[in-house]
Amino acid sequence: MGLKSYSRARAVHAMLVYTGGCNGCDIEIVNAVLSPKYDAEQYKIFLTWNPREADVLIVTGPVTKQNEEPLKEIYNAIPEPKAVIAAGACALMGGVYRNIHGDIPSEEIAGPVDRVIPVDARVPGCAVRPEDVLAGAVAALPKLLEAK
């Protein structure tokens, strides 16, 4: 077994993708979940910016039309097995970015994440709580572990 395969089998690499919105969920995920208080790295959950290294894709914000194709490309670049976590009210249902009639899509918004790529775990909140993000990562683990 090569070094890359060995380390990949013993850790979860998460990639965070922002697809529009206020950026509040990203701040909570990066600054709170990866801070010493929550320290997800002690559980072997690492943040990566390379889709080819990722096991879990965490998507925040409503998916804008401008980000729809790049999100699909990132999703397709992540090797199997992979899991997707939609984090925050905007990623789950459009949040405050829904059009005035309450339905999505609009001229600028393609929709919530599950209308663009498959979603395995959902983390509600505006902004998300760090504890809930960790719970979402744990909820996605069975899909990853059964395939390894």
Rank of each mutant, 00 (worst) to 15 (best):
G2V: 03
K4G: 03
S5F: 10
S7K: 13
S7M: 15
R8G: 04
R8C: 05
A9M: 06
A9C: 10
R10M: 09
R10L: 09
A11T: 05
A11Y: 02
V12A: 10
H13S: 12
H13R: 14
A14K: 00
L16D: 12
L16C: 08
T19K: 00
T19D: 03
C22R: 05
C22I: 06
G24Y: 02
D26I: 00
I27G: 05
I27V: 14
E28Y: 00
E28H: 01
V30I: 15
N31M: 14
N31D: 14
N31G: 13
A32H: 14
A32T: 08
V33R: 07
L34Q: 11
P36H: 14
Y38K: 09
Q42R: 15
Y43F: 14
K44P: 02
T48Y: 12
T48E: 12
N50I: 00
N50V: 10
N50R: 12
R52D: 10
E53V: 06
E53Q: 15
D55L: 06
V56Y: 08
V56S: 09
L57P: 07
I58A: 11
I58T: 08
I58P: 05
I58S: 01
V59E: 11
T60R: 07
G61C: 08
G61A: 11
G61Q: 09
V63R: 03
T64L: 12
K65I: 09
N67M: 15
N67W: 10
E69I: 13
E69T: 13
P70E: 13
L71H: 08
K72S: 09
Y75V: 03
N76H: 11
N76V: 04
A77D: 11
I78S: 02
P79V: 08
P79F: 08
E80A: 13
E80D: 15
P81V: 04
A83G: 01
A86Q: 05
A87C: 05
G88E: 06
G88W: 00
A89T: 12
A91S: 10
L92D: 11
L92P: 03
L92R: 11
L92F: 04
L92S: 06
G94Y: 07
G94P: 03
G94N: 02
V96E: 12
R98A: 13
N99R: 14
N99Q: 15
N99H: 13
N99K: 15
I100C: 09
H101N: 14
G102P: 03
D103S: 14
D103I: 12
I104L: 15
I104G: 07
P105G: 05
E107S: 11
E108L: 12
A110I: 01
P112K: 09
V113Q: 00
V113H: 00
D114R: 10
D114V: 00
D114F: 03
R115W: 13
V119F: 07
A121V: 02
A121D: 08
R122Y: 15
P124N: 09
P124F: 02
P124R: 06
P124K: 03
G125R: 05
A127E: 09
A127H: 01
V128M: 01
R129Y: 04
P130G: 10
D132I: 08
V133F: 06
L134A: 04
A135Q: 03
G136Q: 02
G136M: 05
A137N: 07
A139L: 07
A139M: 12
A140K: 02
A140C: 03
L141R: 03
P142D: 10
P142F: 04
K143F: 02
E146N: 10
A147D: 08
A147C: 04
K148R: 15
